[in-house]
């Protein structure tokens, strides 16, 4: 019985510590269209969104996620999805070649992604923090990660 209690305690602690670096991560910012009803998302929710499992916001609006083709894509996948770029590409090819989904929209630069998110209702994406400036304050919102 004590072993199970110890295991449970260690598991809960690992979950807590696993979440801390994310909420403090300064390298990658999760951004969304200004009209999106959420301001905070959990890591599980972010994973579900970028795997195409969660498709609606709380106000029932359609969710559209977008990705980068830059090196920050690898960092985002490592931090939030737990996949390598090759595994993530394979996952989406599986979805596409079985007809379950279309392939995610991908951008060459953070600026193009920011512009798309600013203009597209319900969209969500990620950028390197240095790509964000105050000029985008009225166009997109930064999502906190809990």
């Amino acid at each position: 019985m004590r072993i199970w209690q110890l295991a449970l305690t260690m598991f809960l602690l690992s979950q807590y510590f696993a979440s801390v670096p994310l909420s403090q991560a300064g390298d990658i910012l999760i951004i969304a269209n200004k009209e999106v009803p959420a301001s905070v998302l959990s890591k599980n929710e972010i994973r579900s969104i970028f795997l195409g499992e969660k498709i609606r916001w709380d106000d029932d609006r359609k969710m559209t996620f977008v990705i980068l083709k830059t090196k920050e894509h690898d960092e985002f996948l490592r931090a939030y999805i737990g996949n390598t770029a090759a595994q993530y590409l394979n996952y989406w090819k599986k979805m596409v070649f079985t007809g379950k989904s279309k392939s995610p929209k991908a951008f060459d630069t953070p600026e193009k992604l920011l512009d798309y998110v600013a203009e597209t209702e319900g969209s969500v994406g990620y950028i390197p923090s240095e790509a964000y400036s105050d000029a985008y304050n009225d166009k997109v919102k930064i999502i906190s990660v809990k």
Partner: peptide, 10 residues
């Protein structure tokens, strides 16, 4: 469908 299960995964 996909059902989130909080700390129990998905």
């Amino acid at each position: 469908g996909y059902v989130p299960m909080s700390f129990m995964g998905r």
